[in-house]
Write a protein that binds this DNA or RNA. Structure first.
Length: 305
DNA sequence: AGCGAGCCCTGCGCGC
DNA sequence: TGCGCGCAGGGCTCGC
């Protein structure tokens, strides 16, 4: 479900509450929600109890809470398709799909619970060791330390990260021999982008999802990058995209960017630019949405002789 | 290197 | 009203 803007909304909501908070208790209701923590439920609970949380950090769609009072490690969270992190005061009703609960004592907010709620259980929590970043820059947004969880080390920086290396991105993208949308969804090349924002940015840049990466000009890649940043920033300013109660911020509130989408989920409706009906097409076991006029299919590559 | 398929899951809305 | 089907914001692994 959540892509960069939605995860950032969650990070920003957690930050003031969890920074400096002490973990008083941990309850794992659904062990499958720890699939990123291979050492098991008991290890997760013991490792966390009594620790102090320093910050809330995000890179791409990954979120983590660095821990003090012990080894360099962090609570790692990936929300998958349907995960939520919700702040709950006291036990005001148990959330329906509550999987894991962290009970905290927050310096700013007093006793508070972070509830990991996840319908499909594609998301996961873990305690993961922190390792140095390769470029020496901060691991992600929300912390100055040049550390990332080991499971995030292979994830590229996202386009809103000040340390995102534009030249290197352009070079690596153009060295690929694949379709542009496939490349945008590859979190080891650029992170934070999922099905919604890939479709939106490609529409903004007038590119077809199958446009070959090795035939894009540098200028075209920079235009696409600008569109990506624009759509991610706008969505973030709107509190993210919600189609239903599945994506919400830490207080359970929906975002409003869904009302501003140009192509995603708008099959049959007019392209905001030219009025042609948006089409939905199967793509990688999912769907792609595009304007058939503004985003023409690429010319087929000439057969190599 | 890149790609398709399959896997991990639950629940909603739709058509019959 | 009930049932089956298709669909959903992701990521990882495997075999070709």
């Amino acid at each position: 479900m959540p892509e960069l803007p939605e995860v950032e909304v969650v990070r920003a909501g957690l930050e003031p509450v969890v920074a400096g908070a002490r973990v008083l208790g941990v309850e794992v209701i659904e062990p499958r929600s720890l699939k990123r923590h291979p050492r098991g439920v008991a290890d997760f609970e013991e490792r966390l109890a009594g620790r102090r949380i320093r910050a809330a950090v995000r890179r791409g769609k990954f979120l983590w809470l660095p821990l003090e009072d012990g080894p360099d490690e962090a609570v790692l969270a990936h929300l998958g398709m349907s995960g939520q992190l919700l702040l709950r005061t006291e036990d005001a009703g148990v959330d329906r799909q509550l999987r894991v609960r962290l009970v905290l004592e927050s310096p700013a907010f007093g006793p508070i619970t972070v509830a990991f709620v996840d319908q499909r259980i594609f998301g996961s929590l873990a305690i993961d060791p922190l390792v140095p970043t390769l470029d020496g820059a901060p691991g992600g947004r929300g912390d100055d330390d040049a550390l990332v969880p080991a499971q995030v080390a292979h994830i590229a920086r996202d386009p809103l990260d000040p340390a995102f290396d534009e030249r290197e991105f352009v070079r690596r993208l153009r060295a690929r021999r694949t379709g542009i949308k496939r490349a945008l969804l590859d979190q080891t090349l650029i992170s934070g982008i999922g099905n919604i924002y890939a479709d939106e940015a490609l529409w903004g840049a007038r590119l077809h999802f199958d446009a070959p990466t090795d035939r894009l000009s540098r200028a075209a890649v920079l235009t696409l990058l600008a569109e990506l940043r624009l759509v991610l920033e706008r969505a973030l300013a709107d509190g993210g995209t919600s189609f239903d109660a599945q994506y919400v911020n830490v207080n359970g509130a929906s975002g409003y960017f869904g009302q501003r989408l140009s192509v995603y989920g708008r099959a049959g409706k007019p392209c905001p630019r030219c009025g042609a009906p948006i089409v939905r097409e199967p793509f990688m076991n999912r769907s792609s949405h595009r304007c058939p006029v503004c985003q023409r299919p690429p010319r087929r590559r000439a057969a190599t002789a």
